[in-house]
Amino acid sequence: MEVVMAFVVGGMYAAAIYMMLRRSIVKLVIGLVLLSNAANLLIFTLAGMKSGAPPLIPPGMSMPDGAAADPLAQAVVLTAIVIGFGVLAFAVVLIHRAYEVVKADDMDQMKDTDR
């Protein structure tokens, strides 16, 4: 699964970057969402994908039963998801404000307003 995921994640990166290269500002937002999902999946994939091995310890034991998936990568991804939401909200509102002020959603026009 990891090998296939490597291609999927690469595709997601490509999609995200393609969207960020567009001039329409709404597409930039979509690119951002794609990019944060892609980065999360990248970390998750590289930590090794094991099914049926949650990093939980059954009651009364001191170690997980058998192998456990990498808890550190999971913790990293978990916080990254939440922060990603905060940053996305910030970006979206920023773009919205910029649009309100300059009345342009073509980034080339936006750029020209600060001259």
Binding site: A6, G10, I17, Y18, L42
Partner: peptide
């Protein structure tokens, strides 16, 4: 450009796996 970047990520992941 996007495909080059994506391809690079894929290669990186494959080499790290």
């Amino acid at each position: 450009i996007a495909l080059v970047a994506g391809g690079m990520i894929t290669l990186l992941m494959l080499s790290t796996l």
